[in-house]
Design a protein around this nucleic acid. Sequence first.
DNA 1: TAGTATATGCAATTAAATTGCATATACTAT
DNA 2: ATAGTATATGCAATTTAATTGCATATACTA
Lengths: 139, 139
Amino acid sequence: MNINPVSILKEHDLKHTKQRVRVLEEIALDSVAISQPDLEKKLGKEIDRVTLYRILNTYQEKGILHRIMDMNGTANYAVCTSSCSEDHHHDEHVHFNCTNCNKIYCLEVEAPRIKMPKGFTAKTVSSIAYGICEKCNAI
Amino acid sequence: MNINPVSILKEHDLKHTKQRVRVLEEIALDSVAISQPDLEKKLGKEIDRVTLYRILNTYQEKGILHRIMDMNGTANYAVCTSSCSEDHHHDEHVHFNCTNCNKIYCLEVEAPRIKMPKGFTAKTVSSIAYGICEKCNAI
DNA sequence: TAGTATATGCAATTAAATTGCATATACTAT
DNA sequence: ATAGTATATGCAATTTAATTGCATATACTA
């Protein structure tokens, strides 16, 4: 993922701190979403646990990160595409959660439009496919 | 929801206990999924917390209940349609999570088939639409 | 560069989930 | 019916996750 943490922070009126930059860098390393526990393991010595929580919440609210819940209710984070904003997350693509390695992929597949019943108004739709990923299938 | 807890238990080779029956009854009361915290509040005095965890896990594994994770990673439970089984959850319908009242509805809408990229094999797909529900829209 | 607002880290608390074990309960075969 | 066996339940204790309050440190503004 090719992002510039500093300019992302500026765009969203967030103060430039080394912890915030570090978190964004770490998450952007991989196109695969990273789980909160894994992030903690990687950053645990550099960034306080509580700070990490707060940074992740801020990023999610600002539309900088997607939060994808896996089957166990664990939060996973990935960098949003540039079109996301505070009031509208454009994460209408499909996520894929491998039931073997538990990785979450952002597929380049548009989430299909779903017709809502009368009275219901949908703002966003999250589709998660569960199965076996590329790598695990190859083994 | 019109179910018979006793026969459901039999079908799945589960022992008939009053706790298991009670849990099924409670969840089947409403077509809307119920959250684990709400279940605990309702059953807390009748059923031990740990037992509830275990019953819910068993039901989910056996395909008796759907587990739907909401935005906060909280588990919500609803009765599966009769076509669910241990090896294949047929919950390919869309869920709707109201961002106002936080209720989760099982919509009578089939989840659309999604084409997977090469190498990925999907077993189930879960689609959750977020927005405002019927009731909250009416207010 | 001083002043101010906000982010961070630490300590403490609260809440959620898991484990082990003794007892109680449901089912099986007699 | 009943004894025996397997499994479910409830309790206590533990582990893990998440939240809150507050003092200090850091980034931005004028």
